[in-house]
Simulated scan of single mutants.
Amino acid sequence: MRIGVHRLAMAHPGDVAALRALVESGEIDPGTIVATIGKTEGNGGANDFTRAYATTILAQYLSTVRKQSAREVEEGVAFVWSGGCEGVLSPHVTVFTREDVPDGAPDGTKRLALSVQRTRDFRPEEVGRVAEAREVAAAVGRALTDLGCGAEDVHYVQVKGPLLTPAGIADAHARGAEVVTTDPNRSKAYARGATALGVALALGEVAAAAVTDDAIATDLSLYSTVASTSAGGELTACEVIVFANSARATSPFRIGHAALSDAIDLAGVRAALRDAGLEFDCEPGESARGRIAAVFAKAEAPVGGMLRGQRTTMLSDADINYERHSRAAVGALIASQTGDSRIFVSGGTEHQTPPGQAPIAAIVAL
């Protein structure tokens, strides 16, 4: 397979001008688009409707050039959006294409491959619980089969799934079912945690017996090192994108990953770039920076609000949610190395690396 990676700036959540230009020039065959991962300037909360708006507009555009209905496009393409472009983070979308060409690179190296999978729709009472984790685990398993690789080859698994909405909560209660929480914003933590544990379960990072309803968003000693999960009210199923380096791929890219020990861990950013194959001494020069195709990271407030012995206000600020603080900080950290603010940084790391840490992955051109 051959994977294409196209990182495109967006003037607003409904901006498809950059993608249209690539389609019209012939650089992108719209029929090969399988996934998009992007940032919008919404608030990132349960009521962030920029994500659904961006999906709607992009699906409508692709429906015209793919000669499909918008619904068929949404069933065939994974649209993952994270709201919140705090600090230097720039609204953008990374478009991934996949062509199933003859297997294997000429030199036998493992190169970037990706597989898009979907779960079934979830009832509100299943969101943030074991049922969701198991369905995500099954989806990751299907992806590994598709890619022809093992867990050790996986460097990044992006999952976007549903959170609880007032309508969903009311529906569950009308049927006599109990939801994990009646707070839509709080449900993000359970939803992210359940899907992250699904990834960990599929990759053998946690034991099946350890994944219980009580453990989700509570026992943070259970985690995946490559999961990056988000939740939004615009979904009812989970979209799962597994990124790996596979011997079946002919792509001109590699992917690597690392963990950020905290929000100012510059060494962690560099470790992810090097793991993807970027060679540099102290920090990437202009030539090396030009090879960085995409960076994906999570952001978290320091445990107890203390960063390397010093107090922060991330967890005590009544005006600005901690996720917005952390996204801004981590975005600036990464941009200082890449020289490009089109970085995907999402908040909330429940079961994604150990507590206080955050995953980071980078795609680099060979």
Rank of each mutant, 00 (worst) to 15 (best):
R98E: 10
R98A: 11
E99V: 11
D100Y: 14
V101R: 09
V101L: 14
V101I: 12
A105G: 00
A105H: 15
P106K: 08
P106G: 02
G108N: 07
R111V: 03
L112A: 13
L112N: 10
A113P: 07
S115A: 15
S115W: 06
Q117P: 07
R118F: 12
T119H: 06
R120L: 11
D121K: 15
F122E: 07
R123F: 11
E125P: 04
V127M: 08
G128Y: 04
G128I: 07
V130M: 11
E132L: 15
E135R: 13
E135H: 13
V136E: 03
V136H: 10
A137F: 01
A137K: 08
A137R: 12
V140R: 11
R142C: 02
R142I: 01
A143C: 09
A143Y: 02
D146N: 12
D146P: 01
L147F: 10
L147S: 10
L147Q: 07
G148N: 05
G148I: 05
C149Y: 04
A151Y: 08
A151W: 05
A151H: 11
V154A: 14
Y156D: 12
Y156K: 06
V157R: 15
V157Y: 13
Q158A: 15
Q158T: 06
Q158L: 15
V159F: 10
G161P: 09
G161F: 12
G161A: 13
P162V: 10
L163Y: 01
L164H: 12
L164Q: 10
L164E: 04
T165C: 07
T165N: 06
T165W: 05
G168N: 11
G168P: 12
I169D: 04
I169Q: 09
A170V: 05
A170P: 04
D171H: 09
A172S: 15
A174I: 00
A177P: 00
E178D: 11
E178W: 00
V180I: 15
V180W: 03
T181R: 04
T181V: 06
T182S: 14
D183F: 04
P184V: 03
P184W: 01
N185V: 03
N185A: 13
N185C: 02
K188F: 13
K188N: 00
A189T: 09
A189S: 11
A189K: 07
Y190D: 05
Y190M: 08
A191H: 04
R192E: 07
A194Y: 07
G198K: 12
A200Q: 06
L201Q: 14
A202G: 00
L203Q: 06
L203E: 00
G204I: 04
V206E: 08
V206F: 09
V206R: 09
A207E: 15
A208K: 12
A209P: 04
A210V: 01
V211Q: 04
T212H: 05
D213W: 02
D213L: 05
I216L: 08
I216F: 05
A217D: 13
A217E: 06
L220F: 02
L220E: 07
L222N: 03
L222Y: 01
Y223V: 00
T225M: 06
T225N: 09
S228H: 11
T229F: 02
T229A: 14
S230C: 03
S230K: 07
S230D: 07
A231H: 01
G232N: 02
G232H: 03
E234S: 09
T236Y: 02
T236S: 09
T236M: 03
A237S: 12
V240H: 03
I241D: 01
I241P: 02
I241R: 05
V242P: 02
